[in-house]
Nucleic acid binder design. Structure first.
Length: 386
DNA sequence: GTTGGCATAAACACAT
DNA sequence: CATGTGTTTATGCCAA
């Protein structure tokens, strides 16, 4: 099913033109790099795609990295190019999920630019497919998002975001649709959510909403991550609860947050590394976030969204680890990766909480309407997305 | 081997 | 009573 969905997703969402077109299919041939298998018809192609190019964690990660590199090369001065020139990712190096940050941007960027909500990240040219499907989840479609509750959170655009337009920004669409755990810690994500609020404050429920709205990954196992969110809000001094008319809202004590961050941060002497690829994920992420122009190339996709996460590099670290430190890539799917850590357990079955399993595909259509969403929904995805 | 950070689980208090 | 919200403690994993 799953893969199926993925494929479908790809196939489907693509260009509206014909129902049978696909970026990787043309002239009866699979255009997957290095493949060129002949497929008599589109359906055959889909099968082929599905069987031969199923994106596993590793390939997905690799694709992302490659894309990132390519993009970098495109925008970099020639001189850096050689650095980036991709060395194949060494296994040891792993690109884990993290790469998402950086990487996906490429992909995303394309999507973002042209995409509208309903699409998925799949990209036309590349196997970007970063998104791998979790295999499980039937595609769900959902029309666009709910009108949301009006509470539109304005695109913050706070200085930070702008300034750091981190890499993720460009990946907004990606995370929104792909069931990939974002490489950031809960604290970082919570802060981001709050920062994006026009008034820099959010109720717990709004924070929940932001999570589900922004990351497909958090549309599942709500009990787990919601608990984590509350836990983080209470635990970190940087999050301050303020009584408000509407009840209580949470705000961020930037000083406290930065303080904490600064402690961690220390040696990321970025750039010197031998090529991004070799950089450990965390580092990559860090780089991305650090808004190195190099990586993020926010410019390209700037339009799209807010800078998600203006976080700092360190923020990533923690998260990254969880992501997959071991090199396994799989950010996406393999929830069970070794690290129990954050991966919310997949429990597809348990959608109970609220979540519906969304696979990419699903996601693709993006339909978050998960229960929560309905409640929360602020709706305007547009903010971020478009 | 120790330590720190983070995620996750869970118990508990309170309020609605 | 059921839920949601907060707080706190415990535990496990991983990287430094």
């Amino acid at each position: 099913i799953s893969h199926h969905s993925v494929v479908n997703g790809q196939a489907r969402s693509p260009p509206p033109d014909s129902g049978t077109s696909h970026a990787l299919y043309g002239h009866g041939v699979c255009k997957w790099p290095g493949c060129e298998s002949i497929c008599e018809d589109f359906s055959q192609f889909l099968k082929h795609l599905n069987s031969e190019h199923a994106l596993d964690d590793r390939s997905t990660a690799q694709c992302r990295v490659q894309m990132q590199v390519v993009q970098q090369l495109e925008i970099q001065p020639p001189r850096m190019a050689h650095l980036l020139y991709l060395h194949p990712l060494s296994p040891s190096t792993q690109y884990g999920p993290a790469p998402l940050n950086l990487v996906s941007s490429v992909t995303m960027s394309k999507n973002l630019l042209s995409v509208s909500p309903p699409n998925l990240p799949q990209t036309p040219t590349t196997p970007t497919a970063p998104v791998t499907p979790l295999s499980q989840a039937p595609p769900v479609l959902s029309p666009a998002s709910l009108p949301g509750m009006g509470a539109v959170r304005r695109r913050h655009s706070d200085k930070y975001a702008m300034a750091m337009s981190s890499e993720i920004a460009p990946n907004y669409e990606f995370y929104k649709n792909a069931d990939v755990r974002p490489p950031f810690t809960y604290a970082t994500l919570i802060r981001q959510a709050i920062m994006e609020a026009g008034d820099m404050q959010l109720t717990l429920n709004e924070i929940y909403s932001w999570f589900t709205r922004t990351f497909a990954y958090f549309r599942r196992n709500a009990a787990t991550w919601k608990n984590a969110v509350r836990h983080n809000l209470s635990l970190h001094k940087c999050f301050v609860r303020v009584e408000n008319v509407k009840g209580a809202v949470w705000t961020v004590d930037e000083a406290e947050y930065q303080k904490r961050r600064s402690q961690k941060i220390t040696g990321l002497s970025l750039l010197g590394s031998p090529g991004l690829m070799y950089v450990s994920l965390p580092l990559q992420a860090a780089l991305a976030e650090s808004s190195l122009p190099l990586l993020g190339s926010p410019g390209l996709m700037s339009g799209s969204s807010t800078g998600l996460l203006q976080t700092a590099p360190e923020d990533l670290n923690g998260a990254l680890d969880h992501l997959d430190t071991n090199g396994h890539s799989s950010p996406c799917y393999s929830p069970q990766m070794h690290k129990p850590a954050v991966h919310v357990k997949e429990e597809p079955l348990n959608l109970d909480d609220d979540e519906c399993p969304m696979s990419l595909v699903t996601t693709a259509n993006h339909s978050p309407e998960l229960e929560e969403d309905r409640e929360l929904e602020e709706g305007n995805l547009s903010e971020d997305v478009e």
